[in-house]
Design a protein around this nucleic acid. Structure first.
Lengths: 317, 317
DNA sequence: TATTTTTGCGTAAGTACTTACACAAATACT
DNA sequence: AGTATTTGTGTAAGTACTTACGCAAAAATA
């Protein structure tokens, strides 16, 4: 329940469906209150036949906006409940003309009375709610007709694809995105270790405060890549870590851009050496590091990460 | 389509359902656009498992507001598509903990990108529509929570039952109600004849203009009974006709009240004799006429109505 | 006039959920 | 400790529609 709300308008479809189901359930209860052995879904068909006796099921479907199959099923039930009669049209043997039975005529006024009560209540209910659901629905449907959601999303996607990559420094509100991108990335190839979460949950404390830096890549206002520099004990040495790029923006060289920016930042900070740890299965990452100028370390160093089996360094000129 | 709109807010449930279905269909198309082999209805389950790995299906159901049965089915499909894994909880053998597979992790960022695009488009769409569907839905749901529709309708019904019967003269806008009550009544016992429709479609011309009258019974602003006086060729003679009362208000003596008012009106018009035609199968109507003082006519007169086999008259003192 | 296409209708199966029921594991109660 | 209840899960069937398909009658076309 809480989650759906967090999802927000993305789950509008579900929300509408649930409300519709609720109303249908209430409608069934209301019929029961009026002592009518009548299903809510019969209503449009039955009412239309009452208004236009002799109508064919085909026309009913068209007028109420259902498929003929749906109408056919409802008519079958109404026939079974002896509320309708069906006779073939003498002019056209395919058509079946529908009419109310005596019992149908008996039920009709009660149905009308009930409908009048429902209409009154519904009108009141809709008048009470501000803004009006009725006109909001109308406006929404109109907008949707003007341009379907699918087209809108396609356009949004294209705008995103066309938007430039922006590199910038970590700011206060970036922690969730920073964490998510890294957690997604780690969970994809390895299993998350407690050591991972320390820095991801408290980047300010573990990365920035000791003199490091975090760089983010942003597309259309959304963070799509991260990369961190941790100041190492040796003077002038920095560790390149937390390099994570959303696979959804693959092929846009975001890892390379982040790496270059990180090296530039090390230069600005007066650093001379950059070190990193990775894993031999991550071949695309390794080739990226090589492209940036990193060289494998001959002598392995102790590491807090179980998954690190590759160590590289780069000495800045 | 036209008909549904005429039905108005009574069919709100159907309208919401249709809109929801439309959105779901669009969602499926959007997934296809992103090259994702992913069903819209998987989304909440999948996304929640991604956010909270190791969650039990029970908790998923609770958080997304579906039944556990629904979640169970969706999980089954996700397992089949190798997007999720399910392992029994060692602490509690009943619980099954859910987690994303490697493939699930692969899909996740694409899904996230797509969701971001959908969210942006949907936010725009909702912002474009004035009044806002989102807040209107919220307000409506809140009102409905405060008092369910069923209760509202019950209250409306009660108000209607408690409302007094008002007798009044026919006015310009009354023709549809006048016609409907009579058509319903005739169609219930007989078949409609062209002669019926003449007076019902043009009461002003056929009844009022020649010096007759139409009386209506109203409850809570709704016409529930009709009765007409037609001036007959003989001086001082009137025919009582178009006596129709909605069966939904049976037992409230509306026929009797209308009859009494009609006789009073004849007196006011200076008439001395009232005549009527009816059918022998309509025993409740016949006893009503007797109660009003009508006597069967010994000698039958010619009648334009095929169904008239009883003729009565009343001589005012 | 014979054949093809269209139209009206019915049935079957699918959809995205629900309610109803069954079953075993865990917990509460005596 | 033994039984009763609760809880977590799965399956079956229902709901209110849909799409897909088949059949026969009517209309269009050759």
């Amino acid at each position: 329940m809480d989650f759906l709300q967090q999802l927000g308008p993305v789950a509008l479809g579900s929300r509408l469906r649930r409300l519709s189901e609720q109303l249908t359930a209430e409608a069934a209860g209301i019929y029961a209150d009026y002592g009518l052995n009548f299903q809510p879904r019969w209503y449009p068909v039955f009412y239309l036949v009452a208004q236009q006796p002799g109508i064919a099921s085909n026309e009913v479907a068209e007028q109420i906006g259902h498929t003929h199959a749906s109408v056919s099923q409802i008519v079958k039930e109404l026939l079974r409940h002896e509320l309708l009669t069906m006779t073939p049209d003498p002019q056209d043997q395919r058509r079946r003309r529908l009419q109310l039975t005596a019992r149908g005529h008996e039920v009709l006024p009660h149905l009308r009375a009930q409908t009048a009560d429902v209409r009154r209540s519904m009108d009141e209910l809709l008048a009470e709610t501000e803004p009006s659901l009725w006109s909001a629905l109308h406006a929404f449907e109109q907008q949707l007709r003007r341009q379907p959601l699918r087209q809108r999303v396609a356009a949004a996607r294209q705008r995103r694809a066309a938007a430039p990559v922006v590199l910038r420094d970590y700011r206060a509100g970036d922690q969730p995105a920073f964490r998510q991108l890294n957690v997604d990335w780690i969970a994809r190839y390895f299993t998350l270790e407690p050591a991972d979460l320390k820095a991801l949950d408290h980047p300010q404390e573990y990365i920035l405060a000791p003199g490091g830096a975090i760089l983010l890549a942003e597309i259309a206002g959304e963070v799509v890549g991260t990369c961190a520099l941790l100041r190492m004990p040796e003077t002038g040495s920095y560790e390149l870590a937390k390099m994570a790029v959303s696979p959804a923006v693959q092929g846009r060289q975001i890892g390379f851009l982040l790496g270059q920016a990180a090296l530039q930042r090390v230069r600005e900070l007066g650093g001379r050496r950059v070190y990193l740890e990775s894993n031999s299965v991550l071949t695309p990452a390794l080739s990226l590091y090589r492209k940036l100028g990193f060289q494998p370390l001959a002598q392995p160093l102790p590491s807090p990460y179980a998954r690190a089996d590759v160590q590289m360094e780069l000495l800045l000129p």
